[in-house]
Nucleic acid binder design. Structure first.
Length: 236
DNA sequence: TTGTGTTTTACGACCTCC
DNA sequence: GGAGGTCGTAAAACACAA
């Protein structure tokens, strides 16, 4: 199989055999310890063919130069055509199969990194959306309070006008409110927002625990205001 | 020095494309 | 059918705290 082919190929006697050696290791920023696991080499892991007769370890780290060359090539093009692979392998003293494997792993790392970045970005947007929702719900509470006070004032004025015998036709704004019958606020749902004592507007919230106190539930992503918020962040 | 967590190298299985 | 891709995983190499 391929395992035997890999270690029977030319790269075995190339300079990077010294990569894990003392000189190379000491040239790196942090000294690298060598740990021998020779005892395990003979252990039957069912992975026969690890040794190429000479007791060579199964894996060898690539040298910095080899990794650098591979990195440069990867930046140019993430896919690897046959010609490029063979050329790169010859140039770096590697087996073409090693180059292919390195590119596969490098693509996987790249993808993983991209996913991490994407996750962080989405989390940031999520937190911002939660904060925005909290602001909106607190604003709603304030508006409801004002509405209640206004309705109370209207009732008071009406009763005062009624006691003076006037048949109220001057209550324009008051009528408008009154026309709503059971008050518009009755159709509002305050949701689950609990007003935080120290919360009085934007810029007051920082840590997530405050967010959690403010908005104990995380549903409602279909809310159009949240969609707007996401679009503000350029996420959709 | 050692135990443990992370990174790197390598492989097999499976899929797609030519 | 072969070459090269992704995905999942094993294991060596390595870093580092205790």
């Amino acid at each position: 199989m391929d395992k035997q082919q890999v270690f029977g190929s030319s790269y075995v006697d190339m300079p990077f055999f010294a990569a894990n050696g003392t000189a190379q290791g000491e040239s790196r920023p942090r000294a690298r310890r060598r740990r021998r696991r020779a005892a395990r080499c003979g252990g039957g892991d069912g992975d026969g063919g690890d040794m190429d007769g000479g007791g060579d370890p199964k894996k060898r780290r690539l040298t910095d130069e080899q990794v650098h060359g591979l990195e440069l090539s990867f930046r140019e093009e993430r896919k690897l055509e046959t010609g490029r692979k063979v050329h790169l392998a010859a140039e770096l003293g590697l087996d073409p199969k090693q180059v292919a494997v390195w590119f596969q792993n490098r693509r996987a790392r790249h993808k993983s990194k991209l996913m991490e970045e994407e996750f962080a970005k989405l989390k940031h947007a999520h937190d911002a959306a939660i904060l925005h929702k909290c602001h909106l719900e607190n604003e709603l509470l304030r508006l409801k309070e004002r509405l209640g006070a206004t309705e109370e004032e209207v009732r008071r004025l009406r009763s005062a006008a009624g006691s003076h015998g006037a048949s109220g036709n001057g209550g324009d704004a008051a009528d408008a409110v009154g026309a709503c019958g059971g008050s518009p606020s009755s159709s509002f749902s305050t949701g689950t927002c609990q007003q935080h004592p120290g919360f009085s507007g934007a810029g007051q919230l920082g840590p997530d625990d405050e967010l959690m106190m403010c908005v104990p539930e995380y549903g409602g992503y279909a809310d159009s205001s949240v969609v707007e918020w996401f679009s503000l962040y350029g996420l959709i």
